[in-house]
Design a protein around this nucleic acid. Structure first.
Lengths: 334, 334
DNA sequence: TTGAAAGCGCTAACAT
DNA sequence: ATGTTAGCGCTTTCAA
C-alpha cells in the first residue's frame, strides 16, 4: 500500500510534523538534525513514499493544476492547442489536465463541475456551448477561467481567439481579387462565435464587392459535414467557382466529395480554408489557408489565467489575434 | 467562495450528516423528511454547491479518475488515442486526465508521480522511456497501470499494442512483391519497443527475400527527422527504389524533402508508411500505409485497466493487435 | 428521522 | 531541535 507520513513517522520514531518538515525541505529551517533528516529521507525512499496531494489540497485549497477543456482532440487545431498549452505550462510548477467534451455541452458542463470539484486553480476552455451562462457562473464564483477560440462577447469572461472577422475577410478578399464572385461558404457549428464572426466577415466582404446573396451552407466542424455539403453543392447549377470552408476538417470532407466527382482543384473550382495543417502542403493541390496563431493564443490565455490566479489586474482581458494567409495553389485566377 | 456541506448545514439548521445524505441521494434510505430534503436541495442550489472531491477522496481513497499519459499530442496517432480513450471512458462514471510528456522521460516521471499523488484509480501510458523500470515500480505498488503502443516485453506490466512485427512484415512484403529490393527504412525513436520490433520485422522480411544489408536510418518520430534523413538519403547513389517510414510524421518530413528535390512518388521512388491519417488519401500521391487499430487498442486497454481496478483476474494481459494495410498509390511495381 | 464524532493525509500555529 | 493539536470537507459508524 501507499505509505503516508504516519508510516514514516512510526518507522523512524519521530513525529509526523518533523517528517513533513524534512520531506518539504524545511529540515534546515527548523534545525532538525542531519541525523534525523537522513533517517527520514531514507525511510521515505524505502517505503516509496509519494505525498498524497489530497491531503495537501484539502489543507491549502490549492492544487497547482490547470484544467483545459476542448471540444475535440480529433480536430488537429485542438490537438495542437492542447499540446501547446501542456508544453507552456510545464515548468511553471503547475500541471495540466486535459479533457475532451466531444462537442457535447452536457459533457462539458459535467467536466466543468468535475474540475471545480477537484479544486483546479484555473480553467482554460474552448466551449461547445451556444451561450456562456455556465461559464459566466464559474467566473462569478471567482474561479479563474479563460475562453479560447470559442468565446462569448456579451460576457466579461476573458478570452483569446483569432480575429475571425479579419481572417474571413482575408480569405474572401483573396478569392474576390482573383475574379471569383460565385463563392460558396461551408460553415461549422452555427452557434459558435468563431463561426458567426467568420460568416459576418465573409458576407461583409462580399457586400463590399457588391455581391448581395451569398451561398452559406453546413452545420458543424466535421469531415462529414464538408463532404455532404459539397455533394449538395455539386447538384446546383451553376456550380460556384470557389469554395471557402471554415475549418480544416470541413475542407477535408469537401475534397473527398470533389475528388469522387472528378472535380479538380483549382482547375474546376478554387478552394480556400480556415486552419493550417502540416499536410496541407502535400496535398494533390496544396491548399491555401487562413492560419490561426494558435501558439500565441495559448501563451496569452495562460498569461491571462495566471494573472487571475495571482490576482494581478490586467486591463486587457479580451484579445483577438491577427491570422495569417498562407498562399498555396488551390485558388485560380479567373 | 465555494460552499461546503457545513455552509448548507448552517443555513438549513440540520446537521452536516443529514446534508451529506440528502445530497448523495440517500435521503429516502435514511427516511429524511421530504420537507428537509427539499430545503437542503434548494439551499445547495442557491449556494451553487459543488462537492469538494478532495474531501471525498481523502475519505475513500478513490477518485474515479483515469490518467492518460502520451508522449505527444501533436502526433495525430496519440491525439486519436487520447480522444478515443476520453470518449470510451465517458459514461463509465470515471473521468480522464490527459497529460503530454513531450517525449521527455523526466517529464513523464514527474507526471506519473503527480498522478499517483492525485490518487488516480488507474493509469494508461505510452511511455517515452527506454526501459520500464519506473512503470514496473508503479505496478508493484499495486496501482493499476497499462501500457499502450510503447510497451516493455520483459515486464509483467499489461500492455496493448499493434503487432508491429506483422505490420512491418506486411509493408516490407508489399514492397518486395512489387519488385523493390533497394529499400531504405527511416525509423523513429530507436529505443522504443514499436520501433525496435518494426525494424526486426523489416529486416526479417528482407532476409527472407535473401537481402542481407538493409538501409536503416533516423532517430525519432518527428517530421524533422523524416526530412533530414531523406535529404541524406538523396545524397546516396544509387538512391533506393522505395522508402519505408515508421510513422506518419516521418512520412511527412520525407515527402517534404522529396518534393523540394523534385523526386516524384511513386515514379521516382515508392513510399509506404506506418500510421493512417485522414489526409493520406488526398495527398498528391495517396499514401499506402499500415494502419494501426487504435480504437481497439484503446478499448482493450481500458478493459484491462478496469479489470485491474476491479481486481478481476484476466489471464491475458499482454495483447498485440493485427494492423491492416491500406493500399493506395504510392508504391509502383518495378 | 436525525446527529455527534471519528478519521482520511497533510500543514501550520503554537508549544516546549 | 522536535512535538501537540487543530482543522481543511467529507463519509460513516454508532447513538439517540
Amino acid at each position: 500500500m501507499k505509505a503516508s507520513l504516519r508510516d514514516i513517522s512510526e518507522r523512524t520514531g519521530v513525529s509526523i510534523t518533523t517528517v513533513s518538515r524534512v520531506l518539504n525541505d524545511k529540515g534546515d529551517e527548523f534545525r532538525i538534525s542531519k541525523e534525523t533528516q537522513k533517517k527520514i529521507f531514507f525511510t521515505a525512499k524505502e517505503l516509496n513514499y509519494v505525498p498524497n496531494q489530497t491531503g495537501v489540497n484539502l489543507q491549502s485549497g490549492k492544487t497547482r493544476t490547470i484544467a483545459l477543456i476542448v471540444p475535440g482532440l480529433v480536430n488537429p487545431f485542438f490537438a495542437n492547442v492542447a499540446s501547446s498549452i501542456a508544453t507552456e505550462i510545464q515548468g511553471t510548477g503547475y500541471n495540466t489536465l486535459i479533457t475532451d467534451s466531444n462537442e457535447n455541452i452536457e459533457i462539458e458542463k459535467d467536466e466543468l463541475k468535475q474540475m471545480i470539484s477537484r479544486n483546479v486553480d484555473g480553467i482554460i476552455i474552448a466551449s461547445a456551448g451556444h451561450d456562456g451562462s455556465h461559464i459566466n457562473k464559474i467566473d462569478d464564483m471567482g474561479i479563474p477561467i479563460v475562453c479560447i477560440d470559442r468565446y462569448f462577447d456579451n460576457l466579461q469572461v476573458p478570452f483569446v481567439a483569432t480575429d475571425n472577422f479579419l481572417g474571413a475577410e482575408m480569405a474572401t478578399d483573396h478569392l474576390l481579387k482573383r475574379g471569383h464572385n460565385h463563392i460558396a461558404c461551408i460553415q461549422g457549428a452555427m452557434h459558435s462565435m468563431p463561426n458567426k464572426i467568420r460568416i459576418k466577415g465573409f458576407e461583409h466582404t462580399m457586400n463590399r464587392y457588391g455581391i448581395q446573396d451569398c451561398t452559406i451552407t453546413g452545420s458543424d466542424f466535421t469531415v462529414q459535414n464538408g463532404y455532404t455539403e459539397t455533394l449538395l453543392l455539386l447538384q446546383n447549377k451553376p456550380f460556384p467557382t470557389a469554395i471557402f470552408t471554415l475549418s480544416n476538417t470541413i475542407a477535408l470532407g469537401c475534397m473527398k466529395a470533389l475528388k469522387e466527382n472528378n472535380v479538380r482543384v483549382p482547375e474546376d473550382v478554387s478552394l480556400i480554408t480556415f486552419d493550417n495543417h502540416p499536410y496541407l502542403d502535400y496535398l494533390s493541390t496544396p491548399l491555401t489557408c487562413v492560419a490561426q496563431p494558435f501558439q500565441d493564443i495559448c501563451r496569452i490565455a495562460i498569461r491571462l489565467l495566471f494573472s487571475m490566479i495571482d490576482k494581478e489586474d490586467l486591463t486587457t482581458k479580451q484579445v483577438l489575434l491577427r491570422p495569417e494567409i498562407l498562399v498555396r495553389n488551390s485558388v485560380k485566377r479567373i
